[in-house]
């Protein structure tokens, strides 16, 4: 397939998945902020995006309003839900001949929905319905994609993009816990702590699947579930297994060997997670582990660019974006 088309399919999907995950980030904070002990902690949400500097340049304080504004409808901010959906649709528009009609119509409707709500002044007062719709639209597009698009090379780029973006964003959801302060050091391991961990699970739609697998909430088990679980579709390990599968479908190489740098980097990271114990994550420090994970995901993204979308400019550091 055309390199440009592969690139557009890749970014179309990353932006849709990114919009969904921003809705999930906000959701985790909504859960927490409604309980008074964490009220007022909106700065962590910006911190996990990796775009703190950009936020501080344009907004004075990290209030509920300013953070919600940034993440949902700020057209100047490239990773707001509005910007992501616009860019997703722009990419979809350039490859309408490749994607199915059903996919296009759903993405087009998603775009019109977000544009309409972005102009609705009351949206920020209660963003719940908006955020729920964003999540559902993304899930619908994923379902339609899997059900109506041939699982050929283009689909594999779509799958690769979704899984890489999701792995990155699930790790960021987990990282919220690092930034959110407990009232005092004595609160570690108390009900407040437990509530925070379960809020993370909720925003990754993972609470009920977690319960079936691990039962009671413990930090190790939550981290293990979101990072290392092989069966939960939003865990980092699951995502990397699927991403690698898609990449190998594209290149046609076997699992024992690699034919380019993207395969090498992705294969190595995936195999590390195959054999990692969650205790090692905590020994190293979870935030440091996640930081390292994210920069390796970025390297994989860059290597995919080099191997398949030749001529594409270098991606931005930390949160990757497409330059067109």
């Amino acid at each position: 397939m055309l390199s440009r088309v592969a690139e557009s399919a890749f970014w179309m999907t990353r932006y849709i998945e990114r919009a969904e995950n921003i809705a999930r980030f906000i959701d985790v904070n909504q859960h927490l902020a409604l309980d008074d002990f964490a009220a007022g902690q909106w700065a962590p949400l910006v911190a996990i995006t990796g775009d703190l500097a950009e936020f501080e340049a344009r907004y004075e304080t990290a209030s509920r309003d300013s953070v919600l504004q940034l993440l949902t409808i700020d057209a100047q901010y490239g990773n707001s839900i509005l910007s992501c959906v616009r860019r997703a649709r722009e990419n979809a528009r350039t490859i309408r001949e490749v994607i199915s009609v059903d996919m296009w119509e759903e993405i087009n409707q998603f775009y019109h929905f977000v544009e309409r709500w972005a102009k609705e002044p009351t949206m920020l007062l209660n963003p719940h319905a908006f955020l729920a719709h964003v999540r559902r639209a993304s899930n619908t597009i994923e379902g339609i994609t899997n059900g109506t698009m041939s699982h050929d090379e283009a689909w594999n780029f779509v799958q690769l993009a979704r899984m890489l973006e999701r792995a990155d964003k699930t790790s960021r959801i987990l990282d919220v816990k690092y930034f959110i302060l407990l009232p005092t050091v004595h609160d570690v391991g108390t009900p407040i702590d437990t509530i925070q961990w379960s809020a993370l699970l909720k925003s990754a739609s993972a609470l009920h699947m977690y319960r079936r697998r691990h039962g009671r909430i413990s930090p190790e088990a939550v981290a293990e579930f979101l990072l290392l679980d092989r069966y939960f579709p939003r865990s980092v390990h699951f995502c990397l297994l699927r991403a690698e599968q898609a990449l190998r479908e594209v290149s046609g190489s076997s699992r024992e060997a690699f034919t380019n740098r993207a395969e090498q980097l992705l294969g190595r990271l995936r195999s590390e997670l195959d054999y990692l114990r969650v205790q090692e994550v905590f020994e190293r420090g979870m935030h440091e582990f996640i930081d390292n994970l994210q920069s390796r995901l970025n390297q994989i993204g860059e290597a995919i660019h080099q191997s398949y979308f030749v001529g594409a400019p270098e991606p931005m550091p930390f949160t990757q974006s497409q330059h067109q």
């Binding site: 397939m1 055309l2 390199s3 440009r4 088309v5 592969a6 490859i95 309408r96 001949e97 490749v98 009609v101 090379e153 594209v250 398949y308 030749v310 001529g311």
Partner: peptide, 27 residues
């Protein structure tokens, strides 16, 4: 039209001429 015919839709930058022959850049 590209979609309905099932052929690639290309932009100028997707095409390249080598040895008086036209090619498209693919993955």
């Amino acid at each position: 039209l590209a979609h309905e015919m099932g052929v690639e839709l290309v932009q100028g930058s997707d095409l390249v001429i080598r040895n008086r022959t036209c090619f498209m850049r693919t993955t």
